[in-house]
Amino acid sequence: MRILTLIKRVPAPGARINVTDDEQSVNTANLGFTMSPHEECAVEGAVQLIEQHGGESTVLTLGPAEAEEQLRYAASIGINNAVLMDNGGEDWDPQRTAKAIGDAIEQLEAEDGPFDLILFGNESADSGGFQVGVRVAHRLDRPMVNGIKGIDVEGDVIVARREVDAGVEVYKMPKPAILGVKEGLNLPRYPTMKGRLASKKVEINAVPPVADAGGQVKVRLLRPVETVSNTVVLGTDESAAPAVVDLFEELGVL
C-alpha cells in the first residue's frame, strides 16, 4: 500500500494567541511549532496501516523551509518519504493551497504510481478552512469523507467511521480514497531515539509550488473580546469544601 499524509506547520501558542503589530500573523516570538493534532493522528494512522499491510508512506507539506522540522518529526515516528513545497511561508488561501497540493500529488503519482490512501487532517489548526482535502479529492476524482475517527483497509475497500452525537456512521469506499481524520483516531506514539536518528537521514524531496490565489483574502487578524473575571477565591485547602458546595446550591446543580 502507498499512503500520503498532508501536514501543515503551525505555531504552538500557550495561554493566549498574540497578533503581530501589522495584524497579519500570529506573533511567534518565543513559540515552538507543531501541526494540528488531527494531522498527528493522520501520520500515526499512516504508519500503523503500513505496519499492518506493508508498503510505504509519504508526508507532504506546503509552507516555509522550516517546515522540514514537521516532516522530520513525521519521519521520526516511521514515515518513509518527505516532500517539501516551499512557498516562502506565505499565507495561501484554501483554493490556492489545494491547487498547489493537487498539482504535486499528480506529479508524485506520475513518477511513482498512485497513492491508495491520502490522509488529511479534519481542519488546519490555525486557519481552519475545512476544505483543502475536499478540493483535492474532487480534483483527483476520489471519494472523500471528513471527520474520520476509525480506518480499516479490507482488500480494495477502505472502511471509515465517523463519530456523530448519536453514535457512529460507517462509510465504505473503493481504493484509491481520501480521508480527513480527527484526533482520537489513535494515540500517536512518541519518537524513539532510533527514530530521531533515522529521520535525519530521510531525503527531503523539494517540489516547487505554483498556483494562483483564490477568492478569499485576509485583511487582518484580531483577538476576540476576552472574558475578564474577578475571580472569587473560595479557599486554599479542603476547608473550602463547604463554600464550594454552597456555590453548587446557589447554581442549582446539587
Binding site: P13, R16, I17, V19, V26, A125, D126, S127, G128, G215, Q216, V217, K218, V219, R220, L221, L222, R223, P224
Partner: peptide, 12 residues
C-alpha cells in the same frame, strides 16, 4: 481561526 481563539477579517 484556531477554533475561535482568534478572528480573521477577510474579503471575498
Amino acid at each position: 481561526q484556531w477554533g475561535g481563539s482568534l478572528l480573521e477579517q477577510v474579503t471575498l
